[in-house]
Every structure is written in C-alpha cells, then in structure tokens.
C-alpha cells in the first residue's frame, strides 16, 4: 500500500469539477484508492463521497493506494492534485 498527502491551495477547495476529475483519473486504475480529510477514508471513485469531505483550502487530505497499479495511480493522482488544486 502507498500513501500520500496533499495540502489544498485552491480557494474553493475540492469542488465539483476537481472532484469529477479525480474520479475520472481514479477509475482508470484497478487499485483501491481512498481519500480522507482528517476522518474516515472514502472511495476516490465515488464523487459524492469526495464532495462530502468538504475539503477546503489549507486542509491536508490523505490518499491511500492499494493494488497492482498503486504506484502509477499515486503518480497520476498527485499530478492531478498539484495541477488543479
């Protein structure tokens, strides 16, 4: 399993569009990908769960990746976070 955390810089936090982009990227991998914001972790392939985290600017969100393509998944997700959040 791999983990990674990221502090959100975007003023609006994880709003609908980046949440949608995250789901799109996450779904391209077979690994189990989870995201949390200080509490329990939710499935990064489900848009309502991600939006329900209410992650705002300054919040540090954690990711975990578990599966065959976990390394590639981590790389793709971290790239997405840096570019759009």
């Amino acid at each position: 399993m791999k983990t990674f955390s990221y502090t959100i810089k975007d003023e609006q936090g994880i709003h609908a569009r980046p949440a949608g982009e995250l789901v799109k990227v996450a779904k391209t991998f077979t690994s189990e990908i989870k995201i949390g914001n200080g509490g329990s972790m939710v499935d990064a392939k489900k848009i309502f769960g991600i939006m329900g985290l209410g992650a705002k600017k300054g919040d540090t969100v954690e990711f975990s990746f578990d599966g065959e393509d976990e390394e590639q998944a981590l790389e793709a997700v971290s790239k997405l976070m840096e570019n759009s959040l």
Binding site: A16, R17, A19, G20, V23, K24, D43, K45, K46, I47, F48, G49
Partner: peptide, 9 residues
C-alpha cells in the same frame, strides 16, 4: 459531473 453522480455507487 452529473453523469458521475448518476453512476456513484
């Protein structure tokens, strides 16, 4: 996004 919401498990 609406499509993803409809497909949300």
């Amino acid at each position: 996004i609406h499509q993803m919401m409809l497909e949300d498990e």
